[in-house]
Nucleic acid binder design. Structure first.
Lengths: 384, 384
DNA sequence: GTGGGTGATGTGACCGGTCACCTCTCCTCC
DNA sequence: GGAGGAGAGGTGACCGGTCACATCACCCAC
């Protein structure tokens, strides 16, 4: 209530320590020993109801907050996590981060972040060590190779949860991990495209350091179920740029009428490439993305995509970590929020008489190409 | 070289402390006192050359790393920062974060992140306190109201650098802050649009809790210089959704032929709204964005926008913080990387005979509207 | 020759928690 | 009625750094 809180803050070692309220102050106020206060703030069962309440009252009155540094030093529960990932501006990395942050905040935990830049093993080991040191617990965004490599550098005794693309990949056995099961959604998306009449669906995959992604498996399963031989999946990058580059190649192949892109940025790049090549989306070619970034519905055409609940993924990862630290190390792996197909405008039936010939000359990025008129209205909004 | 490093890691207070190498181990190995080691790792001048080298050798050999917690506890230099901001998935917030992370990593600092969710003063105060506690130093992303409010809650003795929109706004005097001076670029963008022949340029602003943003001032300056009375700036949000909503209104006003949007997502929303209203970009209406998000060049039309070097902004903020902590509190405010107009496709001359009538009926988001053909090729790529 | 710098180093307390271990009380059971 | 436990609480050391202060050698000036 009163709670004047003073800060002992200084980057450099100045000497203006302010007398922050400590466990012993609380003890004095409550008429108990400092150890009893420690027991109370750690929910030890060995404190009587009356004493606990007295201590809690004192804590409240003095505005006491346990000091993270002291606690860490003394080997207590550290109460903070470091997230390790290679990127923060990609939505697929930023959104889970947001989820972890929210969950950690709710739990009174601190959250740190460390980026992975180099793939060099020594650097990687170093980055992991630096990440472990302040927090003692890790959440690794292991969607990409950097994250997967980092995961391998983490000593087994460090409480760690990995966010991964697929459970089958080279995750250490027993290492708790969370993922979004995109198999069903990828399958559904592919079936949706086949259902629109496409002879086949091409897949422009996000990078995968191990075998295949779940979304790739779902895509393949749908094709096989429809007795279509899956074309080779194209290995792409993470960015719109990579989608654009791949799209430029795909645009030249007139058999390509439907593309399932590895994420929404890639899908945007593909659409741009098609646009430049004079192939209209969705009239000539259908494009479906992955993620449902917040701005995907404002593309023209609005992107049909598979929504992923990344934020919840982050929250689940954090809670997994909590569970791991509470109940020993008895946490296996766990699937989390389902993905969901969001139908918008970027996919439609294939062109009537097979793919028609290119009608505009492919122009390099930066010149405004023509856009032909079009006139039908399938593709209902299925949003929200 | 050898450097076996052990981790004293546990979330819950288990007792498997591993004997991490401490300052006293190093002292023993080097045949000096622990205090001398402390002096060496803190670059104290009061150590002889020979001793310093012996200690450094021992440090290297044992793979010693100072313990952050112990250091913080003892009141030494904390060597970590917390970034406080309201969002991580918006590019304008994520990119500076990335810059801070990189700079902090290079300096051997830890980086934490805390999100601001509630605008409630009590919650805000609480969030700030929690952010200060573990690191002792703050970087506040104060582009939006939440950040600005947080800034006001920070006690003056806490080393803090603010990233702000404009220096004139309600920043506490003397509080070091960094910003990108967008005045010139906003002016240039507006002049560019006027130069294309537009009678006026409308501005759809990002939220600003204080008077005006620099970009708004630049926009106004260009108009005034051209003897055009600036129309009222529209207050928007941060997202594509908000741009879309505002765009729907703008589309109805036939005098609007050029829009300077507060950021690229807003610009996308505006373009979408125009598209639905049957107003072609750039033929009927020109749209210019702000930020140059990595995918902006893949929009159709590719977005003409003002590039901001957010990453460098983050780095500058961090270095400012370092400087602040080293050389007392003698850091005033400082302008940082210039913004730059990137010309792509989304802006062009206004329609010949004044804005032509709407040719398609405005349709709600989700129905695929027509796109008319178009045929000219201004708008050169000025990219990279 | 002695007092007083100054530069290099050592000593011990301390930061604010936790841990291991001890004490004291009260209850139960043989 | 005394051994044995369980429950509640206290005591002091300790984590790994830093700080304030003491020490010691050495040089210079009076």
């Amino acid at each position: 209530m009163t709670g004047h809180i003073t800060h002992a803050s200084h980057l450099s070692g100045n000497s203006d320590r302010s007398p922050a309220v400590s466990i012993r102050d609380v003890a004095r106020a409550a008429g108990v020993s400092h150890q009893t206060v420690s027991r109370v703030i750690n929910d030890s069962p060995k404190v009587s109801r009356a004493t606990r309440e007295a201590v809690l009252a004192a804590i409240d009155q003095l505005g006491f907050r346990p000091n993270r540094a002291a606690r860490a030093l003394a080997g207590g529960p550290v109460q903070s996590v470091t997230v390790l990932g290679s990127n923060t501006s990609l939505y697929g990395f930023a959104a889970p981060l947001e989820g972890v942050e929210e969950a950690s905040r709710d739990a009174g935990f601190g959250m740190g972040f460390r980026a992975l830049e180099s793939l060099n093993p020594a650097d990687m080991r170093d980055a992991v060590e630096r990440a472990i040191e302040p927090a003692g617990a890790l959440i690794v965004i292991a969607f990409d190779q950097a994250g997967a490599m980092a995961l391998e550098c983490v000593p087994p005794e460090v409480p760690t949860v990995a966010m991964i693309q697929a459970p089958s990949s080279a995750t250490l056995p027993g290492r708790p991990s969370v993922w979004i099961d995109e198999f069903a959604a990828a399958k559904e998306a592919t079936e949706y495209l086949l259902g629109l009449g496409h002879a086949t669906v091409h897949h422009l995959a996000i990078p995968s350091w191990s075998a295949a992604t779940r979304r790739m498996e779902g895509w393949r399963a749908a094709l096989e179920q429809a007795a279509v031989r899956p074309p080779n999946a194209l290995q792409g990058g993470w960015t719109a740029q990579s989608g654009y580059e791949a799209g430029c190649k795909l645009a030249k192949d007139s058999r390509v009428t439907a593309v399932l892109a590895g994420n929404d940025e890639i899908a945007l790049g593909v659409m741009r490439a098609m646009h430049e090549a004079g192939r209209r989306v969705p009239d000539d070619i259908s494009v479906v993305g992955f993620d449902d970034v917040p701005y995907a519905r404002f593309f023209s055409p609005a992107l049909t995509t598979v929504r992923q609940d990344f934020k919840t993924l982050g929250k689940v990862a954090f809670h997994k970590l909590l569970e791991l630290s509470h109940s020993g190390r008895t946490a296996p792996t766990l699937a989390s929020p389902q993905a969901q197909l969001i139908i918008r405008e970027s996919a439609g039936p294939p062109p009537r008489s097979g793919p028609r010939g290119r009608q505009a000359i492919a122009t390099p990025l930066g010149t405004r190409p023509d856009t032909g008129p079009n006139s039908h209205d399938e593709g209902e909004e299925n949003d929200r």
